[in-house]
């Protein structure tokens, strides 16, 4: 199948790739760009494991075509950590034991970062509503919700007054 050239920005850096029109953004990220941190759980938009940020919105990358990334700004789990350190959301997930197997974790972290940027002080219900797109089968969500609350507290403390 003939490939299309796509120019995009991934995790702040310009990226160029060739992909078949039938390839999803998820597939391109994983197979063409070796960004395997974004996971496939269902390939039909129902589990949230492949959540990435695209032009400021979170999307399931399995429901976006690779060619649709043309000119877009994409942020994946690989782009969340700051330099060699960790983002407050990542730290909170570790300290709060918010992951067990960890395969849903990249999606949860990308989604949580977007939530807290939009709503720095969410209620428990708002957290649960926002994260209802992301399935976790290991934790029962309790420690995830608490870790999101902990991250929100820390980010608010850090925010310039």
């Amino acid at each position: 199948m003939k490939k299309t050239q796509v120019q995009t920005i991934v995790n702040g850096r310009p990226v160029e790739f060739l992909c078949e029109p039938r390839q999803s953004l998820l597939e391109v990220l994983r197979d063409n760009l070796s960004l395997t941190g974004t996971k496939e759980g269902c390939n039909d938009g129902n589990c949230g494991a492949c959540t990435v940020e695209m032009d400021g919105r979170i999307v399931p990358s399995c429901l976006v075509l690779g060619v649709e990334a043309e000119g877009a700004q994409i942020v994946t789990i690989e782009g969340i950590a700051l330099g060699s350190g960790l983002h407050e959301v990542q730290k909170a997930f570790l300290e709060g034991a918010a992951l067990q197997c960890g395969v849903c974790t990249p999606g949860f972290i990308v989604a949580t970062k977007a939530l807290l940027e939009q709503n720095p002080n969410p209620t428990e219900h708002e957290i649960r509503f926002w994260l209802a797109n992301n399935l976790c089968r290991c934790t029962g969500y309790d420690k995830i919700v608490r870790s999101v609350q902990a991250a929100a507290c820390r980010l608010q403390e850090e925010a310039p007054a």
Binding site: D31, S34, L35, T36, G37, G102, I109
Partner: peptide
């Protein structure tokens, strides 16, 4: 309650699961 040893890999997307094998 120490932080798990594989924690950083699992919150940064670096941990390699089966389908990530290339």
């Amino acid at each position: 309650r120490p932080v798990r040893h594989d924690g950083a890999d699992k919150v940064t997307g670096r941990a390699l699961y089966g389908a990530d094998k290339q």
